[in-house]
Write a protein that binds this DNA or RNA. Structure first.
Lengths: 333, 333
DNA sequence: TCTATTGGTTGGAGCGCTCCAATGCTGTAG
DNA sequence: CTACAGCATTGGAGCGCTCCAACCAATAGA
């Protein structure tokens, strides 16, 4: 249960501790002979450097902290993939912590992450108040994903929700739809831009927007559809606020004996793994999630290594993924 | 960008560094007067202790490392919730790292986690070779979740896959099914117990097992069903190795013009959020995921704090969740 | 009065490492 | 034969903290 130290390796290899340190950091100014002797000794002892001691001594860190607001959401998993890719590439490790969707837990997670003195922090869709972020930003570089900020020490990476909604509407209109409702995400993150984009796109096409209040869940999507059917105002196409909502909408439509997409077309948003399931095969809007992660990590590393100080604001373009839930209205082809 | 140290606080409060240390650790042997002076100075300076320096000096850690083999799988999110709950309760922080489903990345994640010298490690369904785990177990306590081990220094938390499969078969048999196939998970974790449980349950009912080779994906589930249809050996019910596989099976059945559950019943395994979607509404086997996490964290902390040395093997009981993909065979009701 | 005892406080050593100035060593030029 | 690079190597200081033995009143007991 006790790990060997640099001293142990040095002793075994018959060199000084400083030399072992040089070898471990891959310094070129070490003779091949010593290097191999040290590596051999380290191998035999099962030695690996103590990251904390290293960072303490060097007053630098090769760790990026990542706070994920909700681990249950696969959206973040792909962002983390992107972060991981870039970080690993540049010799950085990442440690993740989760905020569990509550500001209190998130605050604690932030504290915990900070106590490791990482080189920087990436916050995925955090819900903590802006002041807490601003305060942390005084201590280290911070990048926000899926949340905006005006603090100049903080970089942000977001998708353009308005454009995403526009893509969906353009697609539906090009299929021949005129009556297109939007099942709205209410207070949910990013619901605002999507709604605005929907309204703007409808008006640009000379059509009347029809916003139906709903939420980011499949139950809410089903409820919204039922209310549309009851009030006899079912359109020929629906843009849901996200994929879950869309799946709920689809099942409510099928329950009512309607066919998707022959009777009603449905478009989701987010392109979660759900949408790709052959059983669902949902037309949806894709956000470049891995790209979010890559950009976030790159932005952070620029601050860390290149001392950039002016803030970066990435606004990425979503894209349309056409699957089997959209077709021309009235079943015509 | 430079954080104050204990020295700074001591200076400001007019006391020694050691006293500040005592206050920070909540020692009772500090006079009220000094304590408040120190806390005030710390507050004013925005001081918070440096976790790494602390752990280096004390040769102990209040951090638990968690390696999640696949962040995309919501299964793990709930386990992490359970871990987090217990750990936080006992004053431990957790740091998460992801293996990205590849042994190489997982190995790296393990290394990275170890370099922080946490008090212990929880590995969620790891795919690294047992030897790597055994080696790590020489350095710190390790708990494995959803993977078994014979190493005596390693604790394990698993669900009883055999029992889960039995529950599913009993349910189907009680509905009247006689011909029930198992879409097998192949090399996947936990596929073995589930297969064994299926075979044992079938034989216990005097029925002939029919194991179809498949995988943990929806595409594989669909493929398996198509092969059954082609070979004209489609049973009246199917037990899939997991929910994804089941969803693939369902869509292949529907593509073939068959109705679920009227023509064929389908049971999944895992009770992922997918299964609960009304559009899918899958009968499946639930594992107590948060309980996995709680037990794993408790087991680890017992090793850490109470020096337990004999291994613990938790085997939790899964339960059947009946939804809308199972019914009596032949559509009879 | 002197010695124990106690509760509060302190300086110093040391955790495992990095960094730096200094050292030894070879080889080549003066 | 000395001088001087140039390179490989080393000891020591120090990162921010904890831990421990020592210390210092102030009070209690003899």
């Amino acid at each position: 249960m006790v790990r060997p130290t640099m001293e142990d390796v040095a002793l075994r290899a018959g060199v000084s501790r400083a030399l072992v340190s040089l070898v471990m950091r891959g310094s070129p100014k070490v003779s091949e002979m010593r290097r191999s002797a040290v590596l051999k000794a380290a191998e035999e002892l099962g030695y690996s450097p103590h990251a904390m001691a290293r960072s303490l001594a060097s007053r630098t860190s090769t760790v990026l902290g990542v706070m994920v607001s909700d681990l249950h959401n696969a959206f973040f998993a792909e962002v983390v993939d992107g972060i991981d890719e870039v970080a690993r590439d540049q010799g950085f490790d990442i440690i993740i912590n989760t905020g569990g969707r509550s500001p209190a837990r998130e605050r604690r997670a932030l504290e915990s992450l900070l106590s490791f003195r990482p080189a920087g922090l990436i916050l995925l869709s955090p819900v903590v108040p802006a002041t807490a972020i601003g305060k942390a930003a005084e201590q280290l570089p911070i990048v926000l994903v899926a949340r905006s900020s005006r603090v100049s020490t903080v970089d942000t990476v977001n998708d353009d929700g308005e454009q995403g909604a526009r893509l969906a509407i353009d697609h539906l209109v090009s299929l021949g739809h005129q009556r297109i409702a939007h099942l709205d995400g209410g207070e949910g993150t990013q619901a605002g831009p999507r709604r605005r984009g929907y309204i703007a796109a409808m008006e640009a096409h000379g059509l009347t927007p029809q916003v139906v209040s709903s939420e980011y869940t499949d139950a809410a999507g089903a409820r919204a559809i039922r209310s549309l059917i009851e009030s006899d105002s079912l359109p020929t196409a629906v843009l849901s606020c996200n994929d879950f909502n869309a799946v709920g909408a689809i099942s409510a439509l099928e329950d009512a004996g309607l066919c998707v997409p022959q009777d009603v077309s449905v478009v989701g948003y987010d392109n979660t793994s759900l949408a790709a399931l052959r059983h669902i095969s949902l037309t949806t809007i894709d956000q470049p999630r891995a790209e979010f992660g890559r950009l976030a990590a790159s932005a952070l590393l620029q601050r860390v290594r290149e001392d950039r100080t002016e803030p970066v604001r990435h606004l990425l373009n979503p894209s349309l993924v056409v699957r089997n839930t959209t077709a021309p209205p009235g079943g015509l082809r």
